[in-house]
């Protein structure tokens, strides 16, 4: 049995991630923590930059930055060398239409992940991010969600000792096609 904590199980992908981790032999339990998964996927809202409110931005930061820091701080005392942290966000750090606050929060989370990867490398803890496409788009099928969950299991693998500080884009090349370049 391998100990894990999943934060954000109630959000999109949460059920699929929980199922995939269970199938891979992970379970929540006492004692040393092997894996922390923080699931904060991005659901794009059709909000123009001019219409984003201060509360929109504050709420996004609460979830995608301040809450993630809290989750990591809670897990760290239980995590020894060999521990893995995986954050699930979206491809929004690259810039996309539909809520600049969400993209800024997404980018903050990737910056946070890279800093944690550098800082925690000294204690043998690896940190990576998964960046699928946005929740609720046409790609978002049960099969695709299962793929997102499998990618989380991959990033959480115990034997990938050199894999840290990375953002795994899982978006069928949508971010490479400049899909955001059409007029909105």
């Amino acid at each position: 049995m391998t100990n894990m904590v999943l934060v954000g199980a109630e959000r999109a992908f949460g059920a699929e991630i929980a199922a995939a981790l269970a199938a891979a032999g992970y379970a929540a339990g006492d004692g040393a923590l092997d894996v922390l998964v923080v699931n904060v996927p991005v659901v794009v809202g059709a909000v123009r930059f001019a219409d984003v409110s201060d509360a929109d931005l504050a709420d996004t930061l609460e979830t995608m930055v301040f809450g993630v820091v809290e989750a990591v701080q809670a897990a760290l005392p239980r995590m020894a060398a060999g521990g893995r942290i995986v954050v699930v966000a979206a491809r929004g750090h690259l810039g996309a239409w539909g809520g600049a606050h969400l993209m800024a929060g997404n980018a903050a989370l990737i910056g946070l992940m890279r800093s944690m990867a550098l800082e925690f490398s000294e204690r043998g803890i690896r940190v990576n991010a998964l960046a699928p496409d946005f929740v609720g788009q046409r790609w978002d099928t049960p099969a695709a969600r299962a793929e997102v969950a499998e990618a989380v299991v991959f990033l959480a693998r115990a034997d990938m000792h050199m894999l840290t500080g990375q953002t795994l884009l899982l978006d069928a090349a949508r971010s490479m096609r400049m899909v955001e370049s059409r007029r909105q």
């Binding site: 930059f49 929060g105 980018a107 989370l109 910056g111 890279r114």
Partner: peptide, 17 residues
């Protein structure tokens, strides 16, 4: 770092729109 990464993310999102 996260705050400055967020500034870059905001920059890109604003540019897109």
């Amino acid at each position: 770092v996260a705050s400055k990464a967020a500034v870059v993310g905001l920059t890109r999102a604003m540019a897109v729109e």
